[in-house]
């Protein structure tokens, strides 16, 4: 697994320049947290790494083939159960028992056939996180993943994420400094004053 490298990346949306010749390296197998105010380009950075957005100039290299992404929105298949939502990305690579175990770890009723549209915001968030973890990706991108979870639940979900992402490249965007501290690893403050390696 290689380090993820952004070299002289520039990105703008219309008139608004988000990145100008930005360079940064994310070490393979490590957790990096990105903290910063809204609108400073944190989400854009994750989207560039995921290949959803293309840079206007510069390069993004070393991105593994299998990436999981927890978006700011849950993006769930609302008419399906929590387990079906995991099955959506995993296919048959995971057994029913394995998927149920993941949901149970996050305090969700694994046997329920209830569609996720009936779930609370916090429950939906946990399903979205479980889906990313179950995908067995080499790189996991988390965009404010613990938003909407109460303090106790947040800690158990962070423990779950740490348990299943050992040795994987994790890039987590957050507003909350305590989340970055708990997850450990390197923290980058945005907007960065200088290029980062």
């Amino acid at each position: 697994m290689n380090d993820i490298e952004l070299k002289n990346v520039s990105k703008s949306f219309g008139e608004r320049q988000v990145w100008d010749a930005f360079s940064c390296t994310f070490k393979a197998g490590e957790i990096t947290c990105i903290e910063g105010a809204s609108g400073c380009g944190k989400t854009t950075l994750l989207r560039l790494i995921a290949g959803i957005e293309q840079p206007d100039s510069g390069t993004v290299t070393g991105v593994p083939e299998r990436i999981a992404f927890v978006f700011q929105e849950d993006r769930l298949c609302e008419d399906f159960s929590a387990r079906s939502n995991l099955r959506f990305v995993c296919g048959s690579s995971k057994t029913k028992a394995e998927l149920s175990a993941h949901l149970k770890e996050l305090g969700l009723d694994a046997g329920s056939h209830q569609p996720v549209r009936t779930f609370s915001g916090g429950m939906k968030r946990r399903v979205a996180i479980a889906r990313a973890i179950c995908f067995d990706a080499d790189c996991i991108l988390l965009d404010e993943p613990f938003q909407g979870l109460d303090a106790e639940l947040k800690q158990s979900v962070m423990d779950y994420v740490l348990r299943y992402t050992k040795g994987k490249t994790v890039i987590c965007v957050t507003h909350d400094h305590s989340e970055a501290e708990y997850l450990g690893g390197r923290t980058i403050l945005f907007p960065p004053s200088d290029n980062l390696t």
Binding site: G51, I52, I67, F69, F71, F88, V89, G91, F135
Partner: peptide
């Protein structure tokens, strides 16, 4: 939903599963 399409592409979900889910 376009956002779901984006997610399915990222997770490389095959067309059969996209069709169902």
């Amino acid at each position: 939903d376009k956002k779901m399409r984006e997610l399915a592409k990222l997770y490389r979900v095959p067309w059969q599963r996209r069709l169902i889910y």
